[in-house]
């Protein structure tokens, strides 16, 4: 392939540059393992799920309530954000006029760029007092779900919009030729045709939601417990790392790396699933 010597050198150089990304992934994996190894070996992974409490300085390593809180906030956020995001995408693609569609997309894109601390700040100052009026203390699972939902809304909306854009024109024309109403077309032809792309977007957003730290930390109340209602405060895995990393040493520090590792594996699995789905779509 390489005709000239220069291209050969440049190609080799670039291959080394490209290798840096792969090396970085390996280094991250290596360091997460290295830092968590002492506790994995000394305590064992099982106790992270079976210990009844989280008190690492007294050798109690129960992460289960926080894992549950992470999953609950993420799923709650998706349940709220998915219909809104998909609805917003359908609106901008099939209902809105040119100008309105542009404005709706601009809103969603701008929203995607707002930093998570700003969502957290707004959640704590504006949203939490509202929830507190209904049921104290306000900082709660519900607050975390709502703030997270707002944060992942743009991801859901933008991926659904992109998926709807790839539906082949003939499908739409055929449906129109059958005399279907616009709504019947959307519900029975267009959305089903874009399904795999929309689901891929939802999985991606779920990963985002699980990995989000700051916004959740600011509004969730951060009490380690299995919540019995959405009004109770919870602490997620990510928030736990952010809260305790500053002073954690020894096995405590190592167990925070274990939760980081667990989080990465869950999010990576979701990313792979999402990627498979969109691959299947582009080949199907």
């Amino acid at each position: 392939m390489y005709r000239s010597k220069v291209d050969g050198y440049v190609g080799t150089g670039l291959a080394m540059v490209g290798g840096v990304c792969t090396l970085l992934v390996l280094t991250i994996a290596l360091f997460l393992l290295r830092e968590s190894w002492s506790v994995v070996q000394g305590v064992g992974l099982r106790r992270f799920l079976t210990d009844s409490a989280w008190n690492p300085t007294e050798k109690r390593f129960g992460l289960a309530p926080m894992l549950l809180a992470s999953v609950a906030t993420a799923i709650g956020a998706i349940v709220i954000a998915a219909p809104l995001g998909i609805g917003s995408a359908i609106y901008s693609r099939f209902y809105a006029g040119r100008q309105a569609a542009r404005i709706q997309r601009a809103i969603v894109t701008l929203m995607a760029g707002i930093p998570s601390v700003v969502f957290g700040l707004w959640g704590l100052v504006a949203l939490v007092p509202l929830i507190n009026k209904i049921m104290p203390p306000g900082t709660s699972l519900l607050a975390a779900m709502l703030v997270l939902a707002l944060m992942i809304l743009p991801t859901v909306a933008l991926t659904a919009d992109a998926a709807l854009a790839t539906v082949p024109m003939p499908l739409q024309q055929g449906a129109a030729a059958l005399g279907l109403s616009r709504e019947a077309m959307i519900a029975h032809v267009l959305v089903p045709a874009a399904r795999s792309g929309i689901v891929a977007g939802i999985l991606l957003s779920l990963g985002r939601a699980l990995g989000e730290t700051m916004a959740v930390l600011m509004v969730a109340g951060n009490v380690v417990q299995v919540p019995t209602s959405v009004f109770e405060p919870v602490r997620t895995l990510t928030a736990n790392v952010a809260l305790e990393m500053a002073y954690a040493v020894g096995d405590h520090r190592a167990s925070l790396f274990v939760s980081g590792l667990a989080l990465t594996l869950i999010v990576a699995a979701l990313a792979v699933a999402s990627w498979r789905l969109s691959e299947a779509r582009s080949h199907g």
Partner: peptide
């Protein structure tokens, strides 16, 4: 793809270590 999916707090852990 893996890098893009790593949660930011995990980058924080990695960067610290």
């Amino acid at each position: 793809d893996i890098l893009a999916g790593v949660p930011s707090i995990v980058f924080g852990l990695f960067g610290n270590a």
